[in-house]
Computed example of a mutant assay.
Amino acid sequence: MDELMVISGDGQQVEQGQEFSSLSVMARSDGAAAGGRVVSFFVDDQEGTGTDFHGGSPVRVTTASDGVGTTDVPLIAGGSPGAVQIKVLADGASTTLSVQVTPGAEGAHVQRP
């Protein structure tokens, strides 16, 4: 495969504990869409935000006939603010998406009696 291109999901910012929107990439081989390819999404949380996919990383999806692969498992923002990288790999090609966990609204984590 020649390349993976980010389609959607890059640059998202959500508050702690919230879900990010789905992440999508397109696989291309010899200039054409590459369907049927397994794409792996890995969380690289170097700032220790606690962000991960529900059930853990990596999430693997298979590209559709148009070459697009979209995560079907929610990416959940962790409990600490910071930047998170999502590394995407398929058949030797790779790309990276960046997302941001922002501080939650003040008092959002107050427990009710």
Rank of each mutant, 00 (worst) to 15 (best):
G82E: 12
G69C: 04
A33I: 04
T70F: 02
R37E: 13
I76C: 03
G69N: 00
A64D: 12
D30K: 10
A32E: 15
V101H: 01
T102G: 05
F53I: 12
G78L: 05
T51L: 06
G78K: 11
E106N: 10
T96I: 09
V59D: 02
D72C: 09
A77W: 00
R37K: 15
G50F: 05
P58W: 04
G55L: 13
S40G: 08
D45P: 00
V59A: 08
F42R: 13
A64Q: 13
D45Q: 04
V99W: 01
G56N: 04
A83M: 09
V38M: 15
T95N: 06
R37G: 03
D44A: 14
A93H: 01
H54M: 15
A90S: 06
V101M: 05
S80T: 15
G92W: 07
V84A: 07
E47V: 00
S57G: 08
A93G: 05
A77H: 00
V88R: 02
S24W: 03
S80H: 15
S98Q: 14
D30I: 05
K87T: 06
V38L: 14
S29E: 14
L89P: 00
V101K: 01
S24D: 01
L89M: 13
G50M: 10
A32Y: 13
V43A: 03
A64T: 07
I76N: 02
V84C: 03
D91S: 04
L75F: 02
V38H: 15
G55P: 04
S21G: 12
L89S: 08
S94K: 07
E106R: 12
A77T: 04
S24N: 03
P81M: 07
T51W: 06
I86C: 06
T51E: 04
S22T: 11
L89K: 02
V84G: 03
T71F: 04
G67Y: 11
V73N: 09
S40N: 14
G82V: 02
F20G: 01
T70M: 12
D52F: 11
A105T: 08
P74M: 15
G48V: 05
I86F: 09
G50H: 07
S80K: 15
L75V: 00
V38Q: 15
R28A: 11
S21L: 14
D52E: 10
A27S: 11
Q18H: 09
V38I: 14
P81C: 08
I76E: 06
S21D: 15
T62M: 13
L23P: 00
A105I: 07
A83T: 09
D44H: 12
A34L: 04
A33F: 05
D45W: 07
S21P: 05
G56C: 07
D72L: 11
L23E: 02
V25A: 06
F53W: 06
P74I: 13
F20E: 09
M26V: 08
G31K: 07
G92L: 08
D52R: 01
I86V: 13
L89C: 02
V39Q: 00
V61Q: 05
T49H: 08
V25P: 00
M26S: 12
S80P: 01
D72S: 11
S94I: 09
I86E: 09
H54R: 15
A105W: 13
G67H: 12
P74H: 14
